[in-house]
Design a protein around this nucleic acid. Structure first.
Lengths: 157, 157
DNA sequence: TATGAAAACAAGGGCTC
DNA sequence: GAGCCCTTGTTTTCATA
């Protein structure tokens, strides 16, 4: 699983993150190598799990997803049954784009995309009816300043 | 820019989100249409801005990005100069994956991916030296429960 | 006449030497 | 690093409702 990445590998990854539809020839030209080695590097990084897959990015607003909420959750319950129900609810709902367990006084944070404030309220009611939650703060995003899928590529590991 | 999406369009988008490398033939088979109409629909949705592009998803840990922080920011300053510096700092730093302006008592939230707590501290110091911030809460993610780029495809708009 | 099936073409990925 | 093959994206043509 662990392979060391050199400067060329990192450049290839940066190109693939920027646009997955860039042709092998073009990537090879940009990183200063030729087709075969570039393709072999990509294959190795895919096998090593560094490259997880390709996806198509869509515009949320064009799909009618006008609202994005961040949900800060504090809970008093930490038993296995509660956790199972919570994880299941979070993973099964497509509105939940992201969910993290946090260190500190907030236990969980969710990022939820929905059509409207009304749709968020439906989601919220469904969630708290499935799992009891001590304290929830729902915060509407007024403006998406930045949202990138491109991970920073570190200079050296 | 605005086009109405029917059930087939939405199925196509769902397939493309799940895996952008799926071939046209395969998508056509799955949505119950043939190649030409599927291709025309994809082209239209690209022109309409619904499809924004393709990207490659990488594994953060394999890239040495072991730490993910959520940064809750309250600020006392809201003048144009401050805002410019803040937006510029956020947009130019590759560690910042996501930034939103919020409604409510937290003004901004950032999601930041870095190699370590130490690297986060470097980022944090650089940020507050560029822009003065009234109150910052930095929270480490202990576990990424869910993280998807696939937007929910609503049944009807 | 508009839509989809199907064939033709071209480009690019995957593989070998 | 050069080159081949074959899949697949892209375009055009043809048929059909």
């Amino acid at each position: 699983m662990n392979i060391r990445l050199d400067a060329i590998d990192r450049n290839i990854l940066a190109e693939l993150q920027a646009d997955a539809s860039t042709s092998l020839d073009e990537i090879a030209r940009r990183v200063g190598a030729s087709k075969t080695p570039v393709w072999n590097r990509i294959r190795k990084m895919r096998e090593a799990g560094i490259i997880k897959g390709q996806t198509t990015l869509l515009d949320p607003e064009a799909l009618g997803l006008e609202a994005c909420f961040f949900v800060l959750i504090r809970t008093s319950e930490h038993d296995a049954g509660w956790l199972d129900r919570f994880l299941n609810a979070v993973k099964s709902r497509a509105e939940v784009m992201e969910a993290h367990r946090l260190a500190g006084d907030i236990d969980y944070i969710l990022k939820v995309r929905v059509a409207s404030a009304r749709a968020y309220d439906d989601f919220y009611r469904a969630l708290i009816s499935e799992v009891s939650i001590y304290n929830v703060t729902s915060t509407l995003s007024m403006e998406e300043i930045k949202n990138t899928t491109a991970l920073p590529i570190l200079e050296a590991e």
